[in-house]
């Protein structure tokens, strides 16, 4: 398991768990839930903020928030 910010650009993963105390509730309401699929679309200059896609929602979050979200990398066959 890695944190969301460790994904490479274009890489997809499944959200496993997150540090709920430090995660804005808003993000959960936007669909950031265990089991949701997530894709890291783009990293801004200096790798912060991150442009991600959770299910159908396209969001930008900061790196420090992404560090609280643990994901399982999609295994490529």
């Amino acid at each position: 398991m890695v944190t969301l910010d460790e994904l490479k650009t274009g890489e997809k993963a499944i959200i496993e768990v997150f540090e709920t105390k430090n995660l804005p509730f808003k993000l959960i309401e936007m669909g950031c839930l265990p089991g949701s699929s997530v894709e890291l679309i783009h990293k801004a200059f200096l790798n912060d903020p991150l442009y991600i896609k959770i299910d159908e929602s396209y969001l930008a979050i900061r790196r420090e928030t992404a560090k609280e979200i643990f994901v399982r990398r999609e295994i490529k066959i």
Partner: peptide, 11 residues
């Protein structure tokens, strides 16, 4: 303040 930053990137 814990900085929260969540922005939707609309179509």
């Amino acid at each position: 303040f814990k900085s929260y930053f969540v922005v939707e990137m609309p179509n």
